[in-house]
Simulated scan of single mutants.
Amino acid sequence: MPLLLLPERRRLGGDPSSAPTLQRLLARGDSSTVPDGAAAQMHAAFDIVPRHLSPAALSREHDARDAALNAWLRADPGHVRADMGMGRLLACGDLGLTPDEVEALLKPLRPLFGDEGFPISAPHPGRWYLMLPREVQLPAFAAPDAVLGDDLYNHLPQGEPGRRWRRLLNEAQVILHNHPVNAARAAQGRVTVNTLWFWGGGTLPGSVRSAWTTLHSGDPVLRALAGLAAMSVADLDTGDGDRADAGVVEVGHIDAGTMLDLRDVRDRAALERRWLAPLFAQQRRGRLDTIELLFADGLRVRYAPAHRWRFWRRPPATPS
């Protein structure tokens, strides 16, 4: 049973008629609901113990293969703009930094975080990390997707648990504001790095298993989970162009143990052409039994060959 991880249905643009296979699967398959969100999708695809997921520890394992002995917290580079008395977070993560720029920006930050016992490093230009003792107690941090476009300070941890992190953020912002790398980037019309964003803290899970054997994804967190579950991992091109159009063919004839990460797809017609129609054709030829769709809004659909006779059913309404 191949599993397709998909975005929220409301994020799929285009006329529903441009994706007849999707409409058929939604209407005639067996539907159920799971909690919404990325973490719920991962728990549905993997058996994870303990259940707490740390994106920081998992992406660190993907980036550096050294996450096992410590706790980790993402401290990603970001850009905040003063706007009507607030600091609006406009970008976080991939800001197009060169390796030399990353190293220069980290140099004055190392004493700040090193003195706290939290060494900072950046094995990837858009993913920066603080290494923490495993026993450290962290407040709840918001993921960047929940903060982008909003006042950064509305999402900082409050009270005594968050006091240290508010202080560290303020001190980091002062260092970055005065950094010559940012002066040069501003002169070139490039986005400056004037803040960090802390999020995703924790340790690697103790155990990860999955009913699937192969993952096709570019997401570092998902790839790390698959590695811990001893799955084989490969890339998946979901962008425009010939490679993406041949996606299923390049992946190979999808078998029951394949998990496809299509959460970045935003166009119904592209989803239909590149993935759903070829998978449905494989099922009609008897090469697949059940096809499973798992949407980020919590809808889970399993479509078996016998469901083709449910011609009277209509797809559920898309959440607004």
Rank of each mutant, 00 (worst) to 15 (best):
T258R: 10
L271I: 02
N170P: 02
K107L: 15
G78F: 01
H79L: 15
S232Q: 14
G239H: 09
A306P: 06
W312Y: 13
L260I: 10
L4T: 09
L294H: 11
L169H: 05
P139I: 09
V191C: 11
G126M: 03
T192L: 03
L22M: 03
L69G: 14
H307S: 12
D240K: 10
S232T: 15
I120A: 00
G14P: 05
P50T: 02
L262M: 01
G159I: 05
R51H: 13
R185S: 03
L276N: 10
A172M: 01
V191S: 13
A224G: 11
G200C: 04
G162H: 05
R310D: 05
L260F: 12
A82I: 15
V249Q: 12
E171R: 11
G286V: 07
W72F: 03
L156I: 00
P205V: 07
F280V: 00
D47V: 15
D151K: 00
A142G: 07
P305G: 13
G286R: 07
V34Q: 07
T33Q: 15
H43Q: 15
P220S: 10
G162P: 02
H179K: 07
L148I: 15
L262T: 01
A71E: 00
D66L: 08
S54C: 12
A67R: 03
W312R: 08
T318H: 00
A75P: 06
T203Q: 12
G29E: 08
T258C: 12
S121G: 11
M84L: 13
R110M: 03
A38E: 10
P20F: 07
A39K: 06
L112A: 00
R284H: 07
M86I: 08
A281V: 11
Y129M: 09
H177W: 14
C92Q: 06
I291V: 14
L69K: 13
V193W: 00
D219Q: 11
P305A: 14
V193I: 05
D297L: 01
G227Q: 12
